[in-house]
Simulated scan of single mutants.
Amino acid sequence: MPQGIRQHKKTSRYESIIYTAEHLFLESGIDAVQMQDIAKAEGIGIATLFRYFPKKEKLIVAVAIKNLERTLAQLNTIVQSPKTAYERLEDTLNYLLTNQTREKNSAKFREAFESYASIAKEPLTDIELYIDIQKEITMALLPIIEDGKSDGSLRTDIPIKETVITLINTYGTFGNNVLLKSPITYTEDDFLPEVQLRILKDIFLSYVNPRYWS
């Protein structure tokens, strides 16, 4: 078999294992799923699975990295658009809102993974790769911040870098909390999580908009 075809098949299998594992982790919980369960669902032998992922935690982290990579790809698209910095920041918050409301499984897995990793007795294998993706996401947002200084669409009388990163992190965390916990949290019908997120988004955007503070 030519080397290129062999590598393509290997990459396809790698991606498929990650997809299958993510589905099982969401369905049954990270702790409950065993490597044998993943191999069976993927339709491969356990020895083949271990050739790709020698330890379960390496697979868990790989799923988490793939999850964040999807977010990074979307943010890069937003950041590279020819809009003002303010408009791109608004698009970023809109993406987070859409991602959290329509793609709840992604947010649900991230929440489960970070809880799992935070109580692990030792740092998970390859966890530094997950942290590196988080850094890449932060770096991807920097053009918005820099462009906001030059195009005048963001305030310059506040530490804008710290402010924007804090707002985005807070918005993402709050969104995960109110959406993922909505089945066990009482809220009035006219104050649903989506409504709260839209209100919070408007508050954040008004804070960085220089027109409100001139």
Rank of each mutant, 00 (worst) to 15 (best):
M1F: 01
M1A: 04
M1R: 05
Q7K: 01
H8P: 00
H8R: 11
K9F: 09
K10G: 00
S12M: 04
S16R: 13
I18A: 09
T20P: 01
I30T: 07
I30V: 10
D31E: 15
A32V: 11
A32L: 10
V33E: 09
V33D: 07
A41Y: 07
G43S: 13
G43R: 09
I46N: 13
T48P: 06
L49I: 14
R51A: 09
P54H: 01
K55W: 02
K56T: 06
A62P: 12
A62M: 06
V63G: 10
A64P: 07
I65R: 08
E69V: 07
T71R: 10
N76C: 05
I78W: 02
Q80D: 15
S81A: 15
S81E: 11
S81T: 11
E90G: 00
N99D: 15
T101H: 02
T101L: 14
E103K: 03
N105F: 00
A107I: 12
F109N: 00
F109Q: 03
F109P: 13
R110F: 01
E111L: 07
A112L: 12
S115A: 06
I119S: 09
E122V: 12
T125G: 10
K135R: 12
K135H: 15
A140G: 14
G148R: 09
G152M: 00
L154H: 12
L154S: 02
I160R: 00
N169A: 09
Y171N: 01
T173V: 09
V178D: 03
L180N: 11
S182I: 07
P183F: 05
I184D: 09
D190E: 12
L192P: 00
L197H: 07
L197R: 05
R198V: 08
R198I: 11
K201T: 01
K201Y: 03
L205S: 03
Y207N: 06
P210N: 03
S214Y: 04
